[in-house]
């Protein structure tokens, strides 16, 4: 974490978000949501700024960030990929999709490719169970997938 340098501009942005919510500790989760959507992730220095503004201990903020799976302390790839592991997708072979994504991207779940382009995660149900198994790439949902489709999908995002 130590190599992360927070620009003054970003720090100011985080402070403004806290102020927007009246520095209310009861709004911590809303503040974290908005901060993550601005910065992409919630590294330690950001958590410290929030703790300072809300007048609570940094470990309280850390406790909340690590409790909820939506929050992340590591940056995601520019194109985040998520494979749905909800029950409906699971029984229709989502585990095989995940294996194939891992193989094609050569990264594990929770990791980002060295060029920072793709990151791979699992999620639980996007509610498109009629299209199971599904994966989301960026904002796009791909449904009724076969492991043999994966290479083609990744290739769609070639620079």
């Amino acid at each position: 974490m130590s190599e992360f340098k927070l620009s003054c501009e970003a720090a100011r942005e985080v402070e403004e978000i806290c102020e927007k919510f009246h520095n209310d500790p009861g709004e911590l989760i809303s503040i974290l949501h908005e901060t993550q959507s601005k910065l992409g992730y919630l590294p330690e220095p950001v958590q410290r700024i929030i703790a300072g503004k809300l007048g609570i201990a940094p470990q309280k903020v850390y406790g909340v960030v690590t409790f909820y799976s939506f929050f992340t302390m590591t940056p995601k790839g520019r194109i985040p990929i998520s494979v749905c592991l909800g029950t409906a997708c699971y029984v229709r072979g989502a585990d095989k999709l995940l294996e194939e994504f891992k193989r094609v991207l050569n990264i594990d779940v929770g990791e980002t490719t060295p060029d920072g382009k793709f990151s791979l995660d699992c999620l639980r149900c996007v509610g498109a169970c009629g299209l199971a198994p599904v994966a989301t790439v960026g904002d796009k949902v791909y449904g009724r997938l076969n492991p043999s489709d994966i290479k083609k999908i990744v290739a769609e995002y070639a620079d």
């Binding site: 500790p25 709004e27 989760i29 809303s30 974290l32 949501h33 909340v64 409790f67 799976s69 939506f70």
Partner: peptide, 19 residues
């Protein structure tokens, strides 16, 4: 919410709403 299944339980949900 922020992705925690246990928050469907009402006391957990209330704590989550309290930040």
């Amino acid at each position: 919410g922020a992705g925690a299944f246990v928050c469907g339980e009402e006391t957990a949900l209330i704590h989550s709403m309290e930040g």
